[in-house]
Simulated assay, not measured.
Amino acid sequence: MRRATVVGVGAALALAAVAASSAEGAATPDEEAGARPMPDFLGRGLWQVFTRLDRRTRLDVHDVSGRDRRVLWPPRWEVCTQHPAVGTVLDRRTTVMIGVVRKGETCPPRVREARR
């Protein structure tokens, strides 16, 4: 019997942390202290969230389509909402909330209105 393997968000974070640490150069003093500005993720793939945020950042990812699906494979999802706003300084106490839909789906109308 073959078992299906599902890579969860924790494994994706670990892979992203390894890729990000090897791709980046020296950190600035603010980055070493854990303070970085919030990037703009709207309309981008969820995988970019995992690769661009610090691995210690608390992250809450949820499906905003209304179907309450579990987000198990980040490359299949696209960002519709993000909190805090772009440019907000992130520190270790900040929880980043990301609302996503499956790639190919459109963001719900109430979410599109809030993005403007």
Rank of each mutant, 00 (worst) to 15 (best):
R36P: 00
T51V: 11
W77I: 06
P74V: 14
T51P: 06
D91M: 06
M97S: 12
L42G: 04
S21D: 05
L13W: 02
E24V: 02
V111P: 10
D91L: 06
D40V: 05
T94Y: 04
V101M: 13
V18M: 01
V111W: 10
K103H: 09
L72S: 15
V49G: 07
H83R: 15
E32Q: 14
V6Q: 04
R102M: 12
S21T: 01
R44F: 04
M97V: 13
F50R: 11
E113C: 04
E78D: 05
A12K: 00
V18I: 03
R2L: 13
W73G: 09
S22C: 03
P84Y: 11
F50L: 13
R44W: 07
V101H: 00
E24F: 00
V6L: 14
V89I: 09
G8W: 05
H62R: 15
R55C: 03
H83Y: 09
D91N: 15
A14L: 13
A33D: 15
E105L: 09
D63V: 09
V49H: 03
T81A: 14
P37Y: 00
W77S: 05
T94F: 07
L53P: 06
V79A: 01
H62K: 10
C107F: 15
T95M: 12
A4E: 10
T81F: 04
V71R: 03
V7S: 02
T81Q: 11
A4R: 14
R115S: 10
L42Y: 01
E113W: 15
L90A: 10
T81K: 01
F41W: 04
W73P: 02
S21V: 02
C80T: 02
G104L: 03
V9T: 05
T57Q: 15
P39W: 00
R92A: 08
G34R: 02
E113L: 15
L90F: 09
A19L: 10
A23N: 11
G45R: 02
V9P: 01
V89P: 08
G104K: 09
D63F: 10
R52E: 12
R67N: 06
V64L: 14
V18C: 01
D60L: 14
G87M: 12
G99T: 07
A19T: 07
R69E: 13
P39F: 00
P74N: 13
T95N: 08
R112T: 13
V100L: 14
P37Q: 08
R92S: 11
A23C: 00
R44C: 05
M1V: 14
L42M: 12
L53S: 07
I98N: 01
P109G: 13
I98F: 10
R67D: 12
G45I: 00
T106N: 09
R55E: 11
P74C: 11
R102C: 02
A27C: 05
R93D: 15
A26Y: 04
D91A: 08
L72M: 14
V100Q: 02
V79F: 10
V61Q: 06
V61E: 10
D40E: 10
R70Y: 06
T106R: 14
G99M: 08
L46C: 07
T28F: 00
T88K: 14
